[in-house]
């Protein structure tokens, strides 16, 4: 697989390590009422879709940026690559 890095252009997937579903960006509020249930779901449950999947890749052998890659889990086709920083900020993280 080739991941089209937003800053560096097309890079081989073997330069990256894979973390998992991009929902891992949405860490629950540790002060919330339902915190233990929220962290159980965050830590252990996954949608695991057959089809389009947003996921976190880390460019370990490159510029060490985190990416959100939108990839089809049935065909391995990558339709979108964004910097995880931009995605997180758009979701209101790291204010």
């Amino acid at each position: 697989m080739i991941i089209n890095h937003p800053l560096l252009g097309p890079r081989d997937a073997s330069e990256f390590t894979y973390l998992g579903d991009a929902s891992l960006i949405d860490r629950p509020d540790w002060q919330a009422e339902n915190v233990s249930e929220a962290f159980y779901e965050y830590g252990y449950l996954r949608d695991n879709p057959a089809g389009e999947h947003q996921e976190l890749w880390y460019h370990e052998a490159g510029d060490r940026s985190w990416l959100v890659v939108t990839r089809n889990t049935l065909t391995h086709e990558i339709s979108k690559v964004e910097l995880a920083r931009d995605v997180a900020r758009a979701r209101g993280r790291s204010k």
């Binding site: 697989m1 081989d12 997937a13 073997s14 390590t17 894979y18 998992g20 579903d21 695991n48 057959a50 999947h53 996921e55 990839r71 889990t73 049935l74 065909t75 391995h76």
Partner: peptide, 13 residues
């Protein structure tokens, strides 16, 4: 291979 997939094939690395 290490990434989510339902395809019954992997990659060369």
């Amino acid at each position: 291979d290490g990434y989510n997939t339902y395809a019954q094939r992997g990659n060369l690395p």
